[in-house]
């Protein structure tokens, strides 16, 4: 607590309007990034091609569909990262859920009508995804395994199991309802995007409006304080990793629906993008800060960069550079606002 010994420097949080303004801007940095990117691509598109980038519903939908899978992983990771943990296993939990959902839908389809078979598949995918999440939670809360190590182990386990179940290949699903779920539209909006938006609202509610969310912030800031306040911290941590696995499971189920196939490696390339989305969204990997809406902006930033650079036909490797630069700027902004005694929540 030595940071608090100097009393003069932070005597009154209301003392400086300009400082507060900086802090407010920093909190919204992911949305600012997004706005800047959209302005950039819009300008480029109009100048070079004489067409709009942003106001094309086709582009908007393409980007939204692209962002679904990494965002779903990032939603769960937002909770885990705010609590001061990390979940490296989400990518392969997603793959596992995709494979299970595919197998279960096919299996149930042999005796049930397609709609019921789809429900069985979805349920099976989500329930099985909770397994690794439960083990993660027990490892971290009961056996005091550091989250990095515990979930890294689960990464391997989920990956191995998914590959074994899939037999090293993709598992095709033939179920018209399931395919419609993944690729259909309602009132012109892709169903998977609608589901994701609803899920985002739910997660935003849980994080910002419930005790569960409040305790997640408290644990991330000061685990001892949370314990002394009577919060059952181990139980809370177990629930966090279950939630993270559930989000990954939903990602896997929607993947299987969209590609009408379950693939063990479905989520493998998404892990880093999802963590990047959380960090760009304003969360600190040290815990205690972050928001769902920030994460949404973070995921959109990454999707817009990747989609937009293809759109303007830039050499593909610049995508990695661009995402990396945004992450670094984001972390620098975070450091700066901390120095200014910023509002971290």
């Amino acid at each position: 607590m030595s940071a608090h010994t100097s009393t003069e420097s932070r005597a009154d949080p209301t003392q400086s309007r300009s400082r507060q303004l900086i802090v407010r801007i920093a909190a919204l940095r992911a949305w600012l990034f997004l706005a800047l990117l959209l302005i950039f691509f819009e300008t480029w598109s109009r100048v070079s091609y004489g067409q709009t980038f942003l106001f094309s519903s086709y582009n908007a939908q393409s980007i939204a569909i692209f962002a679904v899978a990494p965002l779903l992983l990032a939603l769960g990771s937002t909770f885990v990262i705010i609590s001061g943990g990390i979940d490296l296993s989400v990518g392969f939990i997603m793959g596992l859920a995709a494979v299970i959902a595919a197998h279960a839908t096919n299996l149930a389809g042999q005796s049930l009508p397609p709609f019921a078979a789809m429900l069985v598949g979805i349920t099976a995918g989500l329930v099985v995804a909770l397994g690794p999440g439960f083990v993660n939670g027990v490892l971290i809360s009961k056996l005091k395994v550091p989250p990095f190590i515990g979930t890294l182990g689960m990464f391997g386990v989920a990956r191995g199991v998914a590959f074994l179940l899939a037999g090293g290949t993709t598992v095709p699903v033939s179920n018209s309802w399931f395919a419609a779920l993944g690729n259909g539209r309602v009132f012109g909006f892709p169903i998977i995007v609608i589901i994701t938006v609803l899920f985002v609202l739910l997660m935003h509610y849980v994080l910002s409006q419930t005790r569960f969310g409040q305790h997640t912030y408290a644990i991330g800031a000061n685990e001892q304080a949370a314990i002394r306040s009577g919060i059952n911290v181990p139980r809370h941590i177990r629930r966090l990793y279950l939630l993270s696995a559930l989000c990954a499971g939903l990602g896997g189920v929607l993947y299987a629906a969209r590609f009408t196939a379950g693939a063990a490696q479905a989520g493998e390339p998404l892990l880093l993008d999802s963590i990047a989305a959380v960090v760009i969204g304003g969360a600190s990997l040290f815990g205690g800060s972050g928001t769902i809406l920030g994460t949404v902006a973070g995921a959109l930033v990454i999707a817009v960069i990747q989609y937009g650079l293809v759109f303007i036909n830039v050499e593909p490797f610049w995508q990695f550079v661009a995402v990396g630069v945004v992450i670094i700027i984001s972390v620098l902004v975070d450091q700066t606002q901390r120095k200014l005694g910023g509002d971290r929540q």
């Binding site: 912030y217 800031a221 001892q224 304080a225 205690g288 971290r344």
Partner: peptide
């Protein structure tokens, strides 16, 4: 060490848990 959650408001700390 006061056992406060630094990222939460006074009210949230009073009512923590």
């Amino acid at each position: 060490d006061l056992a406060l959650a630094d990222n939460l408001s006074i009210g949230a700390n009073i009512f923590l848990g």
